[in-house]
Amino acid sequence: MIGDIVSGSENSKIVLIEDSIDANGRNVLLSYIVSLSKITEEVHLLLFDVRGQDTQEALKSLGIQNVKVHRASTDLLQWDRSQGIGLHTDIKAYIRERLSPGTKSVAVVIDSLSPLLTHTSPSFTCKTLHELAYSEALRSQVQQVVTLLHGDLHDDNSLSLTHHTCTTVHKMVPITTPYAMFCCNTIHKKVSGKVVKIRESFNITEEYQVTEVAEVKQMSQNLPADQNQLDPTANLTFNLSLSDKEKEARSQVILPYTYNKERQECVLAKSVGEGKIFYQPDEADDFDEEDPDDDLDI
């Protein structure tokens, strides 16, 4: 699933990569940038995060040309009173002014959304994301908006609001399998309206290609259901089941009052002046010892 979304064969308008201090998501973000640089004319990368410089350096070493980097992190709150961008900047207008003329398809990547979400309101952040992806503000076709978010820095309310705005959420989780370097839970909302939830492990090559994607089954599904169920009849002091020999012995016991010629004659010969009861099953009678209630239709 994640391989298809990164490569662009599965459509998704707004992608959110949520990471934490235990599971870094910047590698996945770089995979998206590398893939987007091939399928769109221009990628605009906005850096709000200090470690965005790692992203920038990685892109430089890959030699990708059509990624335009805008560093908003250096003077985030205008403490230095520089002319650069910060949180106060209108991102749409800023990018629009810096689009190369005649560009038809662009993608916007944000590394990371956390300073925006921390210093402005969640609704403003969601609105910004939505406008970048869907409005005509950029005056060209926005293919995709990809953003990184440090999930462990925000409350559940802001996170769920952001999740609702996005069409795909990759939540990075610490790896549980020894074969892969990364693992993430993906929630993807397809254009048809179907929602896919999946946990996958994968590797990322030095060219930032997502490879070896494998679904990670939840541990509880892997275990056979009855493995842990104890047999309640295992350690009883009495016997509940019968062996074949015992069954055979039982079948030979003749129950009292059962119709049997030998017994009838014997009893009739002994007693005088007393009534006797004998049970003689008729054809409709189901004489099955194993399940006496078998004929009941419950």
């Binding site: 201090i21 995060d49 200090v50 470690r51 921390t118």
Partner: peptide, 14 residues
């Protein structure tokens, strides 16, 4: 703890 996590996100080593 929140401050620590946000500073750790900025660092190379913790």
């Amino acid at each position: 703890s929140l401050l620590w996590r946000s500073v750790v996100h900025m660092s190379n080593m913790d």
